[in-house]
Design a protein around this nucleic acid. Structure first.
Length: 446
DNA sequence: TCTGGGGTCCTAGGACCC
DNA sequence: TCTGGGGTCCTAGGACCC
């Protein structure tokens, strides 16, 4: 029996392999066995890579223009990110995974923790194999599975399942089944920077202090970690020893802030175009706000000139506006955002990005009214008829597709790129196969 | 020419109060 | 002229995650 198995409960981390690429491959079999990358918004950076692309040496996060020539010469394919496809396949994948445990945390679009209690090693192994097969059968997405006594160790196990030859064929790594000396060998094969919660800065500091591998980190005194770093990293060190400090979060608490921002398809100078962009981002943020049944008491608008071009004059202003009464009304929020924009916009700059943040969020029904709210603001922020209007708008946009209904401030000539230059570039976008009737895949008899 | 977007947590330091 | 100490709240900045 391994000493890592201190309790009856284990965590499994299931994640999609090169998730965005795998989603694309579900509907385009021609992409299989070929180098494929998916790009960030505006076709900027590489955010997902197939194994074939990794083999070509394409690194995560690299700006695509830097590698494009050589990559495409070598037969590589690049796609714009298609989030409606990825989030739809994600929820299907999550619901299959959810059938394997009654305790599930959806950690990100492609990762889920589940908890398993009371299984022996052989049962765990067959459960994991079965889970993997079912996800593949029902969604077409290949997944890796890591199992450990803590979330941090489950993450590391998942890493081993992806990169260590001993586990790669099955795509499953169960650390709880390993005798201690064997476990140590595997932990020693992982750099300290591969541990969940250790980014590049702290990895460097740890290496300077003589902590090189995941095994080294497991053996340091957790209190020493707290002294040199902070309490979070102390917990990371404890988790590596098999002491669970990060619980499963089945229903994540509502967000404390909501941001909607985008880089533009081209640099923008006109205030009118910025107003349309800011109104669009505000509408999107407000929709998310209502989805989690919250209201905002403050809103920030910000602008950015391009950060990478030193010849361009730099300007990144922001302004925060407070509301006397909290609100989730798109029209109230939009007029505040445009107000803020007028205050910070200055001519003579070419803007690259704008955004809106909703802050100081309160759950609907929990907030206390400000003594200074005047009645007009209360009426605008919270009146039942405006709430009803928002619900109808949300429902229509949910059922008929995003931005079926929009505010006039977002601009009326939406489809033409020449009049909405702020819309992002997505020149390599595949169809929304699963979420739009007009883009369903068509099966043809040969 | 072309470098994403959306989050959280922690700490330090300043303002303010008694 | 001498000029404490402790608490709270807020913000900015830095680190991390995917």
């Amino acid at each position: 029996m391994s000493s890592m198995r201190q309790s009856d409960t284990v965590f499994a981390l299931i994640d999609g392999n090169a998730f965005y690429v795998s989603c694309e491959r579900v509907f385009s079999p021609a992409l299989r066995q070929r180098p494929v990358v998916v790009l960030s918004n505006n076709d900027g950076c590489v955010v997902a890579r197939s194994n074939e692309a990794k083999t070509l040496g394409i690194s995560m996060g690299v700006p695509y223009f830097k590698i494009r020539h050589a990559y495409e010469q070598g037969g590589g394919i690049a796609l714009s990110s298609n989030y409606s496809l990825y989030s739809d396949l994600s929820s299907r994948m999550m619901s299959v995974i959810g059938q394997y445990s009654d305790r599930q945390e959806i950690y990100s679009i492609d990762e889920s923790f589940i908890e398993w209690t009371g299984f022996r090693h052989l049962d765990l192994d067959s459960m994991a194999r079965d889970l993997r097969k079912q996800v593949d059968r029902w969604t077409g997405i290949p997944v890796g599975i890591g199992i450990g006594p803590t979330k941090t160790l489950a993450k590391l196990a998942n890493r081993l399942a992806k990169k260590h030859p001993d586990f790669m064929p099955a795509g499953i790594c169960d650390l709880t089944s390993l005798p201690e000396p064997v476990l140590d060998t595997y932990l020693a094969s992982l750099d300290v920077g591969e541990v969940w919660g250790i980014g590049s800065r702290w990895a460097k500091k740890l290496v300077d202090l003589g902590v090189y591998t995941a095994l080294d980190l497991r053996q340091v005194d957790p209190v020493w970690m707290r002294r040199h770093f902070n309490g979070s990293l102390e917990r990371t060190a404890l988790e590596l020893r098999g002491i669970a400090c990060f619980p499963l979060e089945e229903s994540p608490p509502p967000k404390q802030q909501i941001v909607s921002s985008r880089s533009f398809g081209q640099l923008i100078t006109r205030q009118e175009a910025l107003s349309e962009a800011v109104s669009t981002y505000t509408a999107r943020a407000a929709e998310k706000l209502r989805q989690q049944h919250s209201r905002a008491r403050a809103l920030t608008v910000f602008l950015h000139t391009p950060p990478f071009n030193s010849r361009e004059p730099q300007y990144h202003p922001s302004v925060t506006l407070r509301f006397a009464a909290s609100t989730s009304d798109t029209l109230v929020l939009t007029s505040a955002a445009l107000n803020g924009l007028r205050r910070i916009w200055k001519p003579g700059y070419r803007y690259q990005k704008a955004g809106v943040m909703l802050l100081d969020l309160v759950s609907r029904g929990e907030e206390s009214l400000s003594l200074f709210a005047d009645e007009q603001e209360l009426a605008a922020g919270q009146s039942p008829s405006r709430q009803a209007l928002m619900s109808v708008m949300d429902q229509i946009n949910r059922e008929m597709g995003r931005e079926t209904l929009w505010t006039a401030a977002q601009g009326v000539k939406k489809s033409q790129a020449n009049v909405t230059p702020w819309r992002m570039n997505r020149q390599r976008l595949t169809p929304a196969y699963t979420t739009r009737w007009d883009q369903l895949p068509v099966a043809r008899a040969i």
